[in-house]
Structure formats: C-alpha cells, structure tokens
Amino acid sequence: MQNVFSKEDCDQFINRINQLKPDSKGFWGKMSVDQMLAHCNVSYEMVYENVHPKPNAFIKLILRLLVKNKVVDNKPYPKNNQTAPQFIIKRNRDFETEKERLISYLVRTQSLGINEFEGKESHSFGKLTSKEWNNMFAKHLEHHLSQFGV
C-alpha cells in the first residue's frame, strides 16, 4: 500500500493524475474521467470541507460495523464496487478544476502528515488510525487511477 503521507508516494499519485486527459476512458464502470476525479475528491471534502451532511448516530454505527473494515483494510476494491450515495457524481464536471482540486487535497494531506490523522474523526466511521486513513485514501486513489489506466 502506498503511503499518502510520504512525499515520494504522494508525488507518484500526482504524476499519475497528471497523465489523465479529458478524454481518458475507464476500463470498467460508468464514470467519465472528470466524474472520477470529482468522485475521488469527495473523500477529501469530508475531511476538509463542510459540504456533506454527517450520518446520524444509527447510520454511523451501521457504517462502522458493516462498511468500515472494507474501506480501511489493505485489500483492493473489486471492480464495479457499490458506492455510497454522496460519492455518486451524476453530471459532468470541469476536468481541470477537479484535477487541480484532487492534487491540492493530496498535497495538503501529505504536508499535514501522519500525526495530524492519528485518531482523527472520520465523517462516517468515527476515529481512525493514521494507517486506516492512509489505506482509505491510497486504495481509493489506486482503484480509480488503475480504472483509467494510469
């Protein structure tokens, strides 16, 4: 698993993102490349922006019990995996804007560092270790960058 807190690994993700083109096609799934970038940004919006409603206590408990381990472990996501409603991007987005946002979130996460995320509260899962944060971010990026062949 790559480490989003490592400058070297972060730069590798950024280099892969920079290989994407507005007309890049996915090997699976329905998203366009601009929608995929916006979709990847949702994970970071939940950390850095206040644009997504937080689940209530009951839903958060269900997410912790049924979803959390699949999201934070180091096993790759299967192709065509089901996603949460807030991650579904229904309309096209501006490719360059979404690409710049994602790169900015990656740089911000890397520069804040591992200690910033140790025990940090997740929007959906409660407190996570920095390793769980890393796994969540890295495996999601890996999944979608591979989807688009970079």
Rank of each mutant, 00 (worst) to 15 (best):
F5S: 05
F117P: 11
L145K: 04
N15P: 00
N135R: 11
L112D: 00
Q147H: 02
S122W: 06
K127Q: 14
D9Y: 01
S32A: 02
Y48W: 12
K120T: 02
K68R: 15
S6K: 04
N50Q: 15
E116G: 01
S146E: 14
V4P: 11
R16L: 11
N80E: 04
V72H: 08
W28C: 00
I14R: 04
V72T: 15
F5Q: 05
T109M: 08
V67E: 07
K68E: 11
R64H: 11
D9R: 07
V150L: 09
C10E: 10
M36T: 08
H52V: 15
K120S: 02
Q86K: 10
M1L: 11
H39C: 02
W28P: 00
I89A: 06
I59W: 10
V4F: 01
G26H: 00
N74W: 00
T97N: 12
F5V: 04
P22E: 07
H39L: 03
N69S: 15
L61M: 14
F125Q: 10
Q12K: 12
E132N: 07
H140S: 05
L20F: 11
Q35K: 13
I88D: 08
P76N: 11
S122F: 06
G149A: 12
R16E: 05
V107P: 02
F148H: 11
Y44L: 08
Q19K: 15
L61F: 12
L145M: 09
I114V: 05
K7S: 09
N135D: 05
L106Q: 02
S24K: 09
N92E: 15
N69H: 14
V107Q: 11
F5P: 06
E45D: 12
L63M: 15
N3Y: 03
F27T: 09
W28R: 03
S43M: 09
I62S: 08
K60M: 09
L112R: 08
E49P: 04
F117D: 06
E100P: 01
E142L: 13
K79G: 00
S32R: 14
N18K: 15
P76I: 10
S122T: 06
V71C: 04
I14T: 03
Y48V: 08
R16G: 01
F13G: 03
I17K: 10
A57E: 13
C10W: 00
G119Y: 03
Y77C: 02
K60D: 07
R64K: 15
W28Y: 03
K70G: 15
E96H: 12
G126L: 10
Y44H: 14
K30L: 03
K127W: 06
F87Q: 13
L102K: 04
V47K: 02
L128C: 08
Y48F: 15
